[in-house]
């Protein structure tokens, strides 16, 4: 007996990830602090170590609200970086 699958098609993604940089030395790394608890602490420490180990330039960009899409000015600042780190949750 044939029945339908319930999911439907997947639409085109709004954006896709760029290829990873093979070497971080000399790169500009943007770090997105999404304002979740301890995100600034965790990502700030990551930024310090990345800068020390690779010589990369690291900038931490803060967004005020993790529950809404990042505003345009935050995205514009991150777009100046060649590598972006984010992903801190609760």
């Amino acid at each position: 007996m044939k029945i339908y699958a319930p999911e439907g098609a997947v639409g085109p993604p709004a954006a896709c990830l760029a290829p990873s940089a093979p070497v971080l030395a000399g790169k500009r790394i943007g770090i997105l602090d999404n304002s979740k608890p301890n995100a600034g602490l965790l990502l700030g420490r990551v930024a310090e170590r990345l800068a020390a180990r690779t010589g990369a330039t690291v900038e931490i960009v803060e967004r005020k609200n993790a529950a809404l899409p990042a505003p345009d000015d935050v995205l514009a600042r991150l777009a100046e970086a060649e590598v972006v780190l984010t992903g801190s949750a609760d």
Binding site: M1, K2, I3, Y4, P6, E7
Partner: peptide
């Protein structure tokens, strides 16, 4: 949009459909 996919099940019993779907994470 692309047409919906289909699958084969041995029965239209609601428990059987539940189990066939659950095996796919649905």
């Amino acid at each position: 949009a692309d047409p919906l996919e289909t699958l084969e099940v041995t029965s239209d019993d609601p428990d059987a459909v539940r189990d066939a779907y659950a095996a796919r994470g649905w």
